[in-house]
């Protein structure tokens, strides 16, 4: 009985992924290597019977914890993924980053994430694609903009579910008009869009942090071990760049222990992203999101 809820969430997410695949020619899925987008990737394997016919896009800030990149490439080879990454080379070369001490955290996020994402999706900046024969990244010949972008956003991180949609339009500048969202009913989604606009697709909108971990446990999904305590009494609850992410106090050493910990309600009054320092600056997450960050 306890799995009914997960079953229902899974069926809905699979349905959404297949609708996205049927309706968008240039479809990408953002993979941050974190737990949510890895669950999303797993759901894609469910939807497409073990295959992943969608390009996975990773934005490499170069400040990700190195284990994350190793884990990414390992899974990409193992699961035969079409794996692409992009980054803001210019800002990195000019040292326009927070760790270099030149700009604020928020500005750094904008450079290394928001701008890198925008230009990687539009194809204006180079993309690098994993060659599954050699295991090396090569410049990607495909420069077409992605018109459908699947992301792992969840409503419980966001606040009000009524603001978001499974299929949510973004205009040319990646902007989101919160006040004027299209209606969404009976699993009929917005799949028609004007030239120059694109859609964000959110198959995990109805999932909670606990659901994610319960599902990882049920399906035995390989997940990076940065989420586990390795004897220090600390673990990451949300993964970002190492200069701006601090672990939480927790002795959970595996998935089962995380599920048990979340069920106690221990974190019920602590925001999931509370370890992310950039959220605390002026405007924080809200400003980033409006600009197309996720």
């Amino acid at each position: 009985m306890e799995h009914d809820h997960l079953e229902q969430l899974e069926n809905q997410s699979v349905y959404i992924l297949r609708e996205a695949y049927a309706n968008f020619k240039n479809l990408a899925m953002l993979w941050s290597i974190g737990k949510d987008s890895t669950v999303l990737l797993w759901l894609a394997r469910k939807a497409f019977f073990g295959h992943v016919p969608i390009t996975l896009v990773h934005i490499d800030t170069s400040y990700k914890i190195p284990e994350m990149i190793r884990y990414r490439d390992h899974l990409a080879m193992d699961w035969h993924l079409t794996m692409v990454y992009g980054q803001n080379k210019g800002a990195l070369e000019r040292k326009e980053t927070f760790p270099d001490g030149n700009i604020t955290r928020l500005q750094c996020c904008k450079n290394l994430k928001t701008d890198a994402l925008k230009n990687t999706l539009s194809g204006e900046w180079p993309r690098y694609r994993l060659n599954l024969e050699t295991g090396k990244y090569e410049p990607d010949k495909n420069k077409d903009p992605y018109t459908g972008v699947i992301v792992g956003a969840r409503a419980d991180e966001e606040g009000s579910r009524s603001k978001e949609r499974y299929f949510s339009p973004r205009d040319k500048n990646n902007e989101w008009d919160v006040g004027d969202q299209p209606p969404e009913l009976w699993n009929q989604f917005k799949t028609d869009f004007a030239p120059g606009t694109h859609l964000r697709i959110h198959p995990l909108l109805d999932w909670t942090e606990l659901n994610i971990w319960e599902y990882i446990q049920r399906e035995n999904i390989p997940i990076t071990d940065l989420y586990f305590d390795k004897g220090t009494g600390k673990r990451y609850r949300s993964l970002g760049c190492y200069p701006c992410t601090t672990p939480v106090d927790s002795t959970s050493k595996n998935v089962a222990e995380i599920v048990a910990e979340l069920r106690t309600g221990k974190f019920a009054n602590i925001a999931e992203r509370s370890g992310r320092a950039q959220d605390k600056e002026d405007g924080g997450l809200e400003t980033l999101r409006r600009d197309g960050y996720m």
Binding site: D156, G159, T208, E209, A268, N269, A271, R273, L285
Partner: peptide, 15 residues
Amino acid sequence: LKDEQAQGITIDTAR
């Protein structure tokens, strides 16, 4: 209550 939710607190009470 909504303001609190908007700050992204909690697992379940977001609804």
